[in-house]
Simulated assay, not measured.
Amino acid sequence: MTEPLIEKTSGWRGTREIWIEAAYQALLENGIDGVKVMPLAQRLGLSRTSFYGHFSDRDDLLNALITLWQSKNTGNLVRRTEDYAETITEAILNLFDLWLMPDLFDSKLEFAVRNWAHTDASLAVLLDEADRVRAGALQAMFERFGYDAAYARVRADTIYLTQIGYISMIKDGPSEPLGPRLQRMPYFVEIFCGKAVSEAETARFFARHPLADKGN
């Protein structure tokens, strides 16, 4: 039996945030069918009625998970494409931070939401919209550095579909060591944009992700 995540305290109904966190963990572990009120209450060591102090029903909780996914993954990706960069290679390395920092882009949540969308038509619509927004932001990033719209779109799709495909293949996280993966990223940048990453840009990128120097 799963141990409660928090200690039950008489009269305490928890917080909205801990219910969302418990639902998030259940979604990652068991898919959308695992996100149910009673199992979550048991997981948290709270009563079922405590849930209704924060959410009107299960759908309200599911909408909170969708909002988390939209804000974290789509919102952060769009913002990262708009971050300052002097060159397209630097802009793509800024984007690559998303794939390496779960606080910026949650690949496990992305995988879980995409699986969930297979059985939820309304979520599938939101997922299609998220894909359009993200690809559009990537295209705008290329156009900002002088790429023709048609080429910018193809390059944007190449980056996006490569990463989404990577996420779809690795439910439990990357199977390859992080160090070698980081070392290859400047080569991916060159493939994606047709320009080599400078030594200074590579150094700044590796400084943000020091495992790259250790090959771990």
Rank of each mutant, 00 (worst) to 15 (best):
I6C: 05
E86L: 09
Y187W: 08
R134K: 15
D131R: 13
I66T: 13
M101H: 04
T67F: 01
L104K: 10
R153Q: 15
Y147K: 07
L98I: 07
R144W: 05
K8E: 07
T74K: 12
F192T: 04
T158V: 11
Q139T: 14
R58I: 13
A121S: 15
T87N: 03
T74D: 03
R43P: 07
G14L: 04
I159P: 01
A135T: 15
A149T: 14
S56Q: 12
G34F: 10
L5V: 06
Y147H: 09
E3Y: 08
Y160C: 02
F111A: 06
P186N: 06
R58V: 02
F188I: 02
R204P: 02
S198D: 03
A23G: 14
G31H: 12
T119K: 11
F96T: 04
L65E: 03
L161A: 13
E199L: 05
M185S: 08
S56H: 08
A22I: 06
E90V: 01
L40E: 05
P180N: 10
S71I: 11
K171G: 00
A124T: 03
H54N: 08
L77D: 00
R80F: 08
A140R: 15
G14V: 10
I170C: 12
A149P: 07
F188D: 08
L104E: 12
H209W: 09
D148F: 07
D59S: 11
R114K: 13
F111C: 01
I167Q: 03
K214N: 03
A196H: 06
D103E: 15
L127T: 11
G45I: 11
S198T: 15
E201M: 04
E3D: 12
P210C: 05
T2C: 01
S122I: 04
E7F: 01
D172C: 03
P177K: 09
E176I: 06
L161V: 15
K108V: 00
F55C: 05
N73C: 08
T81A: 10
F96D: 06
S168E: 13
Y187I: 13
L98G: 06
L65C: 06
A26P: 02
P210I: 02
G165S: 13
G179A: 06
L126M: 14
P177N: 04
W99T: 14
A203F: 02
R114W: 12
I18R: 09
W116Q: 11
E110L: 07
D83P: 01
Y84E: 14
D157C: 07
A130I: 05
